[in-house]
Nucleic acid binder design. Structure first.
Lengths: 290, 290
DNA sequence: TCATATACCTGACTTTAGTCAGTTAAAATT
DNA sequence: AATTTTAACTGACTAAAGTCAGGTATATGA
């Protein structure tokens, strides 16, 4: 459909033209875009210079010069990497922190303004999420996380909310078999979060007991990221990590009110088995030998 | 809510990083971005050099040089404005047309690729529309159009589709009082379309008879643009144009199944009057003295 | 008609971004 | 221990974008 294409093209133009205005926190503070982007990356916690260079796609020479200019401005300091003498680490100085928060303030204010001006902010946010996920689907990283961390808790509470909506009887995590956080940490188990540009968009947990059997728990994908095969990637990652722990058999429980989950497990080589716990919520049970 | 802000910021970043990749039709054809943007604007029908300059926010000297470089490449010709000797008009040459379509092809292919890669293309499109409208709400232009043009017909058919969905008995335009296109053209009447970056997002018609009374017809705003007070702007524009035609009384009919429309008319100073036609669809009638 | 404003142009300039070849010092590999 | 790779750096360069002070011709308004 050509009109579909036209709609996307229109969006692209709106966005290309606006992005200047959108992240113009970068502008208006008398610093070129390149330097501002590096400062922003460092402020966001990316200290390894090589990583920043890759993330921003900068030439090594250019990167060096940008760092030097930020350094002479007194905004950052660089020091050698503790483990690898070739690498360097960058850190914000006190005035670097101040400058960085100024960028943050501006950017937040602009975002807030856009939100305030819109009649349906939630619809706008959902749309932005969806688009951002579609555009950024090559950039999803999966990494281990502490299940008690704020990010993990935010994923889990979204997961519980969704279960509560989709189960006829609702969902109360206190009535379910809530795995002990220690069971989802190495060396017994694991917990992973999928990140898209700093936003957590999915998670999965491996609840181990120290033996060769473990359980997969809390597989969740944000509505904004559905359809991108993220659940499959999370499951593959969990299985790989389980193998590393010497686990050879995985089990999980789920519910027939979540047909897409059931289908996913079937397609991924899981076999249905009889009930193996007395959790009141699940009604379908699976096993997979690795 | 700070997490709302974070979501928008995430979207901004996804977009700023991607837009390079999105409209990279501009790249890969051995022409700097500036020149490509100007070529694109001319190809899209923007011939007045001053307008292009304003649209792209370019310095007059820079603009001149970009035009010169496109001219020596043989892609465009410039000629004096027929009405104002100071201004100039730009036009694509034959090979300019060829080059422009090459850009279009590339851009369309990229858009199509994004669409193909997404599991729910329609949801993606709707989200992009919504976001683009939110970002571009300062850039909505309202201009007169021929009600028989393709753009107008596309607006009208979306309008009819929506009526068909919202009326209990559906909607068949052939059973309704379809105004003759001539009645919605100057000097008797008028027809206007709201454009956001080339996409038609709303319309309204003024059906005149040559006398001092006329009727407002076909007020429609695209779902993507609702909540931006566009209907109010369209009505104000229609009233202004009616005044220019020497019309002093406006009437319109609508339906109680469209409560937001009824509310709009009440707020805009219209008074309810008895039925003034035998159209089977409307059940609410309004009048306004200008 | 005369002063002023406007639209576009030209030449001289700066800043920013990016490229590339070569240097240095520290891993990693053999 | 010798060789190769790697990460960051330096200097020399180019391309692109943008700025600024005039200049010319036309239009506009008092």
């Amino acid at each position: 459909m050509t009109s579909d294409i036209h709609r996307i093209r229109r969006f692209n133009r709106a966005v290309t033209r606006e992005t200047g205005a959108l992240d113009t926190s970068f502008l208006g503070r008398g610093r070129p875009l390149g330097a501002a982007r590096v400062l922003n990356a460092i402020g966001k916690g990316q200290d390894d210079i090589g990583h920043i260079r890759k993330y921003l796609g900068l030439d090594s020479g250019l990167m060096s010069r940008l760092l030097r200019s930020l350094e002479t401005e007194g905004l950052i300091t660089t020091l050698p990497h503790p483990k690898d003498g070739r690498r360097r680490i960058a850190q914000l100085t006190q005035s670097g922190e101040t400058e960085f928060s100024a960028y943050e303030e501006l950017s937040n204010a602009q975002a807030q303004k856009l939100l305030d001006a819109h009649p349906k902010p939630n619809a706008l946010l959902a749309a932005m999420d969806l688009v951002a996920s579609a555009l950024g689907q090559d950039d999803i990283t999966i990494e281990r996380a502490d299940p008690t961390s704020a990010t993990a808790q935010s994923c889990l509470s979204q997961y519980y909310d969704e279960l509560a909506q989709r189960f006829e009887r609702g969902f109360d995590v206190n009535l379910s078999c809530d795995p002990d956080a220690g069971d989802m940490c190495p060396p017994r188990g694991d917990f992973i979060i999928a990140n898209s540009d700093g936003q957590a968009i999915g998670c999965a947990g491996l609840k181990g007991s120290g033996g060769t059997t473990a359980e997969v728990k809390r597989l969740w994908v944000s509505p904004a990221a559905r359809g991108l095969k993220l659940a499959t990637r999370l499951m593959a990652e969990i299985e790989a990590r389980a193998l590393n722990f010497g686990i050879d058999t995985l089990r999980l429980d789920t519910n027939s009110a979540l047909p897409e989950a059931v289908a996913l497990y079937r397609n991924a080589g899981w076999t249905e088995i009889p009930r193996f716990n007395d959790d009141p919520y699940p009604d379908v049970f699976f096993e997979k030998r690795l």
